[in-house]
């Protein structure tokens, strides 16, 4: 078999696992599990970036793969774990909509994402173009998770997963963004993350809980 076919097949497999992990995140209730899944998602992303870097022979992509490994597989999950331990929020996070319905909606989103991605992937010339739909679907699903969860921590995880999808879209469609942008995004992410972290503590001090439904009390009648 030709090596590029093998790489394409492997990439498809990785893309599918990315989607699978996204669905697993939608279906999990426990925050700890979500973080583990997030780390796994990062790991898959790392592998796919490495593969693309190898097949396209782009050195920058190796750097961004390393960045992914450091940031998304090691650093952020570790921080998140510590955070939820300190916040005491490692257990169940209530969902607003029941899980099978959420997954059904997710299924619809996947179809929509693929429909949306079709014209783009027809234009793209990379061997990974089929996976743009999956990247888009991962973004949508992360969004869906943010919508259907109640706790602040899960929202952050959803936010981070969304960024994973974006990153994957970038690598699969165009072999990655320019390095500057990528570094910028990584920095943004980190800053955003810290700000949100500070918010958690503020929210908890204010309401004695991380349940976001408390925020509804803030609106003026």
């Amino acid at each position: 078999m030709h090596p590029s076919h093998l790489i394409a097949a492997l990439l498809k497999l990785l893309a599918a696992s990315l989607l699978l992990i996204s669905f697993a995140m939608l279906s999990r209730r426990r925050t700890q599990r979500l973080i583990t899944l997030f780390a796994w998602q990062g790991a898959v992303l790392f592998m796919s970036t490495l593969l693309v870097a190898h097949s396209a022979g782009l050195r920058e992509l190796y750097y961004s793969a390393a960045l992914t490994l450091l940031l998304k597989v090691i650093a952020l999950p570790w921080i998140l774990h510590r955070l939820i331990h300190r916040l005491g929020a490692q257990w169940d996070s209530e969902t607003l909509v029941n899980i099978p319905t959420t997954m059904l909606v997710g299924l619809g989103l996947v179809i929509f994402a693929f429909g949306l991605a079709q014209p783009i992937s027809r234009m793209a010339t990379t061997i990974t173009r089929n996976t743009i739909g999956i990247a888009l679907a991962v973004i949508f699903l992360a969004f869906l998770m943010m919508i259907t969860r109640r706790k602040a921590v899960t929202q952050v995880i959803g936010f981070l997963a969304m960024e994973n999808g974006l990153f994957f879209a970038a690598t699969s469609a165009t072999y990655g963004m320019p390095m500057v942008i990528e570094l910028g995004i990584a920095l943004d992410l980190l800053v955003g993350f810290f700000i949100l972290g500070i918010f958690f503590f503020q929210i908890r001090e204010q309401f004695d809980s991380l349940d976001l439904s408390n925020m509804e009390a803030l609106k003026e009648d």
Partner: peptide, 9 residues
């Protein structure tokens, strides 16, 4: 979903 992925990819 597996079915879908097969058809889509």
């Amino acid at each position: 979903l597996g079915l879908l992925v097969h058809l889509l990819l």
